[in-house]
Amino acid sequence: MKTAIVVFPGSNREGDAARAIAEITGRDPVMVWHRDSELPKVDLAIVPGGFSYGDYLRCGAIAAHSPVLREVKARAAKGMAVLGICNGFQIITEAGLLPGVLMRNAGLKFVCRNVNLRVETSQSLFTQAYEAGQVLSVPVAHHEGNYYADAATLDRLEQSGRVAFRYCAPDGTLGEAANPNGSARHIAGIFNETKTVLGLMPHPENAIDSLLGSTDGRGLFKGIAEALS
């Protein structure tokens, strides 16, 4: 499986994503600079976390129009898998690969801690190593993770099994207390229509080593590697 990681001025989790890919898939990713209009032939493109272009205008808005993102969009339309994490989720949503928008956290604070995530479906290349209903401990670190879409879009996402992860309590139950950012229907991650694009706010790449408190993120990369190898 070949992976490219897109890097913008202000990206800061690209190294963590690269380490996760190298360690779990056994193959180093290619790092691609935002000005490059050519993307090497890869099976997966990762848009990593950080503060691309200083989060100017809106988070992800400027990165969404960079040359490399146009190429990512074109290749995604042909079936290449895309994983957008945190700022990467904001970028691919602004680019129109996923519906909705990530708004300022309802509590107005930057939230940086481990949260519990409920796996909503194992029927995707990203989540196939998990069981539906399984609860993961994965860190979040964001100021704009409050997912918003109109009710019709949210209904459509739910009815077509496109909600990947929801914020939950340790026992998997949903509620305001377990939602770190006010996200609509506790959504933490969603798929596109073909489930080949996943955007999520939490950082699975930072949950691959017990030294950092959780290895629950490994399953995501393991699932991708199994599906795309």
Partner: peptide
């Protein structure tokens, strides 16, 4: 339409 506003919100 393309950049300055996100017309979703």
């Amino acid at each position: 339409q393309k950049l300055l506003a996100n017309t979703v919100i």
